[in-house]
Design a binder for these strands. Structure first.
Length: 194
DNA sequence: TGAATGATGCGCT
DNA sequence: GCGCATCATTCAT
């Protein structure tokens, strides 16, 4: 069975459902120098104004605007003066929510990812949101792009994931009680806990 | 092998 | 000014 690009209807649903199902899917980025792709193994959900860790918890701002838009778009932000984080917007317009891509396994274009990351080996190459964006070359130039287009999208390649687990989210101060981190417990590419 | 820390820039109060 | 959905390095045990 061939790969199928996920449609807007996949993203336009309750965020926890999308987060659980996005594990094991493949993110594709068609760059001028060729295709980059990776198998998603770890994500986190950030949902609505009532989630204290969500950027939308203090209302609409210039930065978090993509979260308030329709599902199926990217939300990329700059953090700690040197890293970027890639999110997928979920749920309908005016229902701010997104999924943070935290870790993946390199599939296509591994050589170019290694070069971009300045690393000799692929171990841990995409194991962390900042490391993933550095290797893929994601910056705010890729903010608010349509995931149903041909530049950036997610594919279902019909690879089974049998051991999806949940845990607390990483790197936040408030909202730690929520088990909104999803990961493939059989993957060695999952990011290391602090 | 675990804890502390520095790097570094921008959005928001 | 402060704090941040991070990470690599340094230092202590």
């Amino acid at each position: 069975m061939s790969a199928k690009k996920l449609k807007r209807s996949f993203y336009n649903r309750p965020t926890l459902d999308v987060a659980a199902e996005i594990i094991g899917k493949f993110i594709v980025f068609n760059t001028p120098s060729g295709k980059l792709s990776a198998r998603i193994v770890e994500v986190e959900a950030y949902i609505g104004q009532d989630d204290p860790a969500c950027h939308a918890s203090r209302g609409l701002t210039k930065r978090n605007r993509p979260m308030f838009g329709p599902a199926g778009f990217t939300y990329v932000y700059f953090i700690y003066g040197m890293y970027h984080c890639l999110n997928f917007v979920t749920e309908p317009k005016d229902s701010p929510a997104a999924i943070l891509l935290r870790a993946a396994e390199p599939v296509e274009g591994c050589d170019r990812m290694l070069q971009a990351a300045g690393k000799p080996s692929s171990t841990g190459l995409l194991s962390g949101p900042g490391k993933f964006c550095r290797a893929f070359g994601f910056t705010t130039e890729q903010n608010e792009l349509d995931l149903t287009g041909d530049l950036i999208y997610i594919e279902n390649r019909n690879v089974e994931v049998s051991n999806i687990q949940r845990s607390q989210r990483v790197g936040i101060r408030e909202g730690r009680d929520l088990l909104w981190r999803f990961y493939d417990a059989d993957s060695t590419a999952v990011s290391k806990p602090r």
